[in-house]
């Protein structure tokens, strides 16, 4: 069965996404890294769905559609917030957003 390879692909994408969120300073690239994690989840959902046989697979596939829809809504709000930051600071560097600490 090929499912293992898809799960490994999902795990690799997930790890790249997590690395991106932690290491990148540019707000837009952080958003892209989060999208990578969500797509890793989609690959996992469809691959694990294929393990469940014809009737169980539908759940995974439908779930993947839900994730795609919600990811679009989320990135819409996220880009709006990044734009707000850019208007006030002329930079999307997240490390410079540090008024509050402690």
């Amino acid at each position: 069965m090929l499912v293992n390879q898809f799960l490994v692909l999902g795990a690799v994408l997930f790890s790249i996404g997590v690395y991106g969120v932690l290491a990148r300073r540019n707000g837009v690239l952080v958003l892209m890294s989060i999208e990578l994690i969500l797509n890793a989840v989609n690959i996992n959902l469809v691959a694990l769905g294929a393990l469940q046989g014809a009737s169980g697979a539908v759940t995974g596939q439908v779930f993947a559609l839900f994730v795609i829809t919600i990811a679009a809504a989320e990135v819409g709000v996220g880009l709006a917030i990044v734009l707000l930051i850019y208007r006030n600071r002329a930079s999307v560097d997240l490390d410079e957003v540090d008024l509050m600490k402690g």
């Binding site: 969120v21 707000g27 709000v77 917030i81 997240l94 957003v97 509050m100």
Partner: peptide, 10 residues
């Protein structure tokens, strides 16, 4: 407020 929004969002 904007800072809290971006931190919360990310």
């Amino acid at each position: 407020s904007q800072e809290s929004a971006i931190k919360y969002f990310v």
